[in-house]
C-alpha cells in the first residue's frame, strides 16, 4: 500500500494544525499526491492536547481517519502520552527532545530535535513548529526539500516568510548534522538497542 499515515500532536498554540496543513499542502499541491488532513481539538482554544492526522497516498484517500500511524510527531508530553501507543511498532517517532521523554520500543526509529531551543535561537519561539517541520521533512523525505520549503513559504502569514524559512532550514540542518548520511542509521540502531 502506498498510504502513509501521520499524526502530529502538541499543546494548543504550538502550531500543530499549521504543521499538518503544510505537510498536506506540500504533498497535495507541490508533490501531486493525495493528502487528507483531519484536525481534532478540545473545546479549549489553548493548552489542551491538540492533534492533527494526515493520510498521504498515491491514490485517492477514501477513509479519512488514521489507525496506526507510520509517523508520529510529538511536541508535548501530554500529546505523546495520549497517542504513543497507536504508533506502528516499526513506525517513526519524531519528538521535541526537551519536552518529550519517550519510552522507546525495540527496533523503532526515533529522532529527537530541540526545536524550541532552535526557534529561540532564531529569536522567535513561535516558529518552533516550523523548525520541527524542517526536521520532519529531513527525516521522512516524503516530499523533496524544495516541495516542503515551497509549502512553508505559501502557507505562513505574509511578511513572515524569511523567518519561517530560516526556521525550516534550522530543523532540516539539525537533522543533517545529527543524523545525516550514516549518522541516521547509527542513531536508529542506537535507539533500538536502548
Amino acid at each position: 500500500m502506498s498510504r502513509t499515515e501521520i499524526r502530529i500532536t502538541g499543546f494548543g498554540g504550538q502550531g500543530v494544525v499549521l504543521s499538518g496543513y503544510i505537510i498536506g499542502r506540500a504533498c497535495a499541491i507541490q508533490a501531486g499526491k493525495h493528502a487528507t488532513m483531519i484536525q481534532s481539538f478540545g473545546p479549549e482554544a489553548r493548552g489542551s492536547a491538540c492533534s492533527t492526522m494526515l493520510a498521504v497516498s498515491d491514490t485517492e484517500v477514501l477513509y479519512p481517519y488514521i489507525g496506526r500511524p507510520d509517523v508520529f510527531v510529538a511536541m508535548s508530553t501530554e500529546g505523546y502520552d495520549k497517542y504513543a501507543d497507536e504508533l506502528k511498532d516499526d513506525g517513526t517517532l519524531i519528538y521535541e527532545q526537551n519536552l518529550v521523554h519517550p519510552t522507546l520500543k525495540e527496533g523503532q526509529p526515533s529522532f529527537g530535535v530541540p526545536s524550541t531551543r532552535l526557534a529561540e535561537q532564531l529569536g522567535r519561539a513561535i516558529v518552533q513548529n516550523i523548525v520541527m517541520l524542517g526536521f520532519v521533512a529531513a527525516v521522512t523525505k516524503m516530499v523533496t526539500h524544495a516541495e516542503m520549503r515551497g509549502a512553508v513559504e505559501a502557507s505562513v502569514p505574509p511578511g513572515t516568510e524569511a523567518l519561517n524559512l530560516a526556521a525550516f532550514d534550522a530543523g532540516w540542518d539539525y537533522y543533517e548534522q545529527e543524523y545525516g548520511d550514516k549518522k541516521g542509521e547509527a542513531a536508529a540502531a542506537a535507539s533500538s538497542g536502548a
Binding site: Y21, G24, A28, I29, H34, A35, T36, M37, I38, Q39, V61, P64
Partner: peptide, 9 residues
C-alpha cells in the same frame, strides 16, 4: 463535520 473539517486539494 468530517467533510467540513477535512483539508484536501
Amino acid at each position: 463535520e468530517c467533510v467540513g473539517h477535512m483539508t484536501e486539494k
